[in-house]
């Protein structure tokens, strides 16, 4: 059988979703952002909710997310995405609203907006990309940077005695009674990507019910440029190091805590 016989329209088993356009993504080679963009758009397409969905882009590497996603979107100031999402969802309770935020956006400058949005149980989906660094501005320390990790603003390693501890904001958010679904996912292997996509689908299905209850999905991602590794090495490093502190898996489902977060200080 020749390649020409295989490469035919009717034999396609995977192609890029139409909700991602043809512009080259602005992310570094191997960055997890692109994968999350894709599975988010795939899910919206598969659920057929693209005409009712409004997304909020953050400040950070994903500031240009709206350039690539073919749905209506708004660009928020740094950290304010959950406030925009609240503003929209309250006047359009039947539309689907998601925010897409990095760790600096969500767990530092936008902590108040994020916590209170979740505390009100806004019926939205928060997508949280945690790569433990400020990628866009060139590799500074993030609130989620691991202890001892070297960044451009912690050149001798994160010293928790002066810089504080890497924040497990996802576990904090899970404690809020109005939060419905909290899970920590990753996109470093095909299996992980498929699981992560299922989590997004579940969150939108919950949102479709139109009830109070925020869905919150953390994605552990590599920032291979920031970590100064290859993409393959970075994913491996993440599995060996990041996963120990930020343990992947479901934390809360349908308002029920599945496990109590372990805090080892």
């Amino acid at each position: 059988m020749e390649l020409e016989d295989i490469i035919k329209e009717e034999n396609i088993v995977f192609k890029k979703t139409k909700l991602l356009n043809d512009k080259p993504l602005s992310y570094c080679p191997g960055c997890g952002h692109g994968t999350v963009h894709r599975i988010l758009m795939e899910t919206i397409e598969e659920l057929g909710i693209d005409e009712q969905t409004i997304g909020i882009a953050p400040v950070g590497c994903a500031v240009m997310a709206y350039e690539f996603m073919e749905i209506d979107m708004q660009e928020a100031a740094h950290g304010r995405a959950p406030a925009l999402a609240t503003g929209i969802k309250r006047v359009y309770p039947n539309k689907y609203v998601f925010t897409y935020q990095g760790d600096g956006d969500l767990a530092a400058i936008g902590t108040a907006e994020t916590m209170h949005c979740c505390n009100r149980g806004e019926n939205i989906l928060i997508i949280f990309i945690n790569n433990g660094i400020y990628g866009m501005t060139g590799g500074q320390m993030a609130p989620t940077t691991l202890e001892g990790a070297k960044t451009s603003t912690s050149p001798y390693g994160r010293d928790v005695s002066t810089m504080g501890y890497p924040i497990r904001i996802t576990e904090l958010i899970a404690q809020l009674p109005a939060v419905r679904y909290v899970t920590r996912q990753s996109v470093h292997t095909p299996a992980a990507v498929r699981k992560a996509k299922a989590a997004i689908k579940k969150a939108f299905e919950y949102q479709a019910e139109g009830k109070q209850g925020t869905c919150f999905i953390e994605f552990l991602s590599n920032c291979n440029s920031g970590w100064k590794m290859s993409a393959v090495q970075a994913n491996k490093w993440m599995e060996e190091n990041t996963f120990k502190y930020y343990v992947p898996g479901d934390i809360k489902d349908n308002f029920k805590l599945l496990k109590n977060p372990v805090v080892e200080l």
């Binding site: 409004i54 909020i56 708004q74 928020a76 100031a77 304010r80 406030a83 925009l84 999402a85 609240t86 503003g87 929209i88 309250r90 006047v91 359009y92 108040a112 907006e113 916590m115 209170h116």
Partner: peptide
Amino acid sequence: MVVLQAESEVSSINMVYGAAGAGKMA
């Protein structure tokens, strides 16, 4: 009409941004 008490003025103006961006009178 929606009336919502936000957690701060920073948040309330950004809620206005969201609703206004969706064409509503906020």
